[in-house]
Every structure is written in C-alpha cells, then in structure tokens.
Design a protein around this nucleic acid. Structure first.
Length: 348
DNA sequence: GATCCGTGGGA
DNA sequence: TTCCCAAGGAT
C-alpha cells in the first residue's frame, strides 16, 4: 500500500460493484440525448470533446449544431480554411482549440485516412488531444475500455474516496488517474464514463450536491463523514489584475479598418481593432469597454483616427478595410463584436 | 510546476 | 458586484 492510498476511504466499493452501480444509474438518470450522442459518429464525438474542453454543455450545444451543418464530415473540416474554422468558433473562446481541431482533422486524414483510432495512446498523438480527451473519445466514440479524468471525475472521486489534496495538484492528479485506471469496466465503458460525468454534472455538483439522489452515497467518504462541503479541497484563490488596453477605430462609409491578430496572443488569429501600447497623440476618445478573461481584466479605450496612415508605421500587422457587410463573415472576439454592434448604427 | 488561453451563467 | 467554474491542453 502506497502512502497516498493509506488515508483513503476504507468503505469504497470494489471496482466491479462501483462501476456497475454507475452504469445502472446512468441508464435510468443520465444524459442520453445530447446532440453528440444521437448518432454514434466518432467525428461528432471528436468535435464535441474539443468544444467541451473547459466549456459547459449548454454553451456548446448551439455551436455543435452549427458546426456539423458547416463541416458535416472530418474531410470537410480538414479541407476548410483556418479563417472559416475560426469564424464558426467565434464566441466560444479558447480559440486555440479551434485551430487544434482543424489540425487534428488534417492529421487524422493524413495519418489514418480519416479514420479515428480507438486507442488512447494513439489519440494522444493528435494535436489538441490530451489524456482526458483521448479517454473520452475511446469511451464515447468506440465504447472501448479506457480511463478518463475531467473536472467531474476529480470532484466525484475526491468526495467518494476522501482525497484531501487540492485536486489541481500533481499528487491528487496522479492519485485520481490511478483510481480511474483501476475502476473502469472492460464492458460498457461508454455508459460508465458517461455516468461519472453525469453524476458530477447533475448530482455531485460543486455547490449543494444532491446527495440524497446519489447512488453512491452509502459508500461515499464525504457523505459518511459529513464533509461534502469540504471536498474537494479549495485551492487558494488568486486575484486577477486589471490591464489597460488601447484600440484604434478608423472607419469610413465603406467599412472599418481591422487587423488579424497574431497566433501567440489572446484572441489568436481573430480580427480586431488594431491594438497599440499607448494612446496615439491627438486622438479623440471614441469609446471604451471592459472585458473579463480567465486570468485578467481588460479595461479598454478605443481611440478614433481619421486615416490609417496615421497608424501604419506603428503597427506590426497590416490593416485591412473590412466592409460593414463583411463583418459578419470574419472571426471577431466577443467584446469587439459587441462594441461594433453597439457603434455600427452611427459609425462616424 | 506555473501560466496562458474565453466566455457565460449562476449564486 | 464579485466570485466561481465548466467534458483541458500546450508550453
């Protein structure tokens, strides 16, 4: 017995009873009609898993539906342009996921003739697929045995097994993955994996879990010890800084001058007002907006200039005049899109 | 190991 | 208003 497992719950069910309990509960109370569950198409699972990375189901659903309409197959996605991909992703956030999904489709076309492998170690070679997504695709697309650990699994396991370490720590991550490897079933892993996620999303929630409806409560460490509100252990919270930002508004009757951002900044490869480090001299304030990211807040000021040549030499990227009509066909960050919607009526 | 990367909804 | 956090991965 290793050090980590010594302090774990001694009332936990053995794997076979645990996973059968989860499977039975899933068939009765789990989610079985999500859009990516309707047809057992590995491409649908692939797309959904990329979109669901750090993003809630309700947010993903409309994006997923539109995506399949626009890119119905892996081949259509692989042959699409990056701009087209980003336009379909705009507003969903974490835009690297979109570029990774695009690269993944091309990789799968080139390497496997468009077939998605059913083995986690092969899947992890695919751009944008890490340990969780590899297990998820194996389970959900192919109903094959594999472990998977996401935020739901971490929360359920921390409570059920009495894991005290902060779930984002390396120690907890290693322990939870070891448990996940020990507990998945050889048969019916799709229902088991879905059941774990469903439990975490609908019963074993971060706040006010509905323990009375949980099929695992009788053998759950946190429930028995009345420590459901203590586990998983909260990490120390950090304050997010507020950063100033300066954007430039240059418009005329035809359209507005925008720039496509570089690939290694926030909003990579999306279009926005040109951004500068300092307000330009003699510029009038056109407006302002605030926006909250995952790790900082942006307090933006938008400065108005009459002509693009007032700015050209201070910018690293080129300006393009985007017609007012074309705005709906390019990928815009949400606050830029919002600002444009607000000011486009009187664009002067 | 720590940081970066979006956005929206709920309490 | 503020804070939390969601089917994580890459660097």
């Amino acid at each position: 017995m290793n050090k980590a497992s010594k302090s774990l719950s001694t009332t936990a069910l053995p794997p076979s009873e645990f996973n059968q309990t989860v499977i039975r509960w899933q068939s009765e109370h789990g989610r079985n009609e999500l859009p990516w569950q309707l047809e057992q198409d590995p491409y649908h699972v692939l797309v959904s898993e990329f979109m669901l990375q750090q993003t809630q189901v309700a947010t993903v659903i409309p994006y997923f539906t539109r995506w399949l309409h626009h890119f119905p197959t892996l081949a259509t996605l692989a042959s699409a342009s990056e701009d087209e991909v980003l336009t379909q992703w705009q507003g969903l956030g974490f835009y690297r996921r979109a570029r990774n999904l695009h690269k993944a489709a091309q990789y799968l076309q080139d390497t496997y003739q468009g077939q998605i492998p059913a083995q986690p170690q092969l899947l992890q070679e695919v751009p944008g697929i890490g340990p969780y997504t590899a297990g998820a695709i194996t389970a959900f697309a192919f109903n094959q045995p594999a472990a998977l650990v996401d935020g739901n699994v971490k929360r359920v396991f921390c409570r059920y097994f009495g894991i005290e370490q902060v779930p984002t720590s390396t120690a907890a991550d290693k322990l939870i993955w070891q448990l996940a490897e020990s507990y998945y079933p050889e048969q019916d892993n799709r229902s088991y994996a879905q059941g774990l996620l469903d439990l975490g999303a609908t019963i074993c929630t971060p706040r006010k879990p509905n323990c009375i409806s949980c099929p695992l409560r009788a053998s759950c460490y946190a429930y028995q010890q009345q420590r459901v509100d203590d586990l998983p252990t909260k990490p120390p919270r950090k304050t997010t800084p507020t950063k100033p930002g300066h954007f430039i508004w240059i418009s005329n009757a035809k359209g507005i001058f925008l720039t496509q951002r570089s690939g290694d900044v926030i909003w990579p490869r999306l279009w926005s007002f040109p951004e500068v480090t300092e307000p330009p001299p003699n510029a009038a304030l056109h407006g302002h907006f605030k926006h909250t990211f995952s790790h900082y807040k942006l307090a933006a000021q938008v400065w108005q200039l009459a002509h693009p040549n007032q700015l050209a030499e201070t910018l690293s990227t080129g300006l393009e005049l985007i017609s007012w009509q074309q705005l709906k066909n390019i990928a815009l960050p949400t606050p830029i899109k919002r600002y444009l919607d607000k000011h486009q009526q009187n664009p002067a």
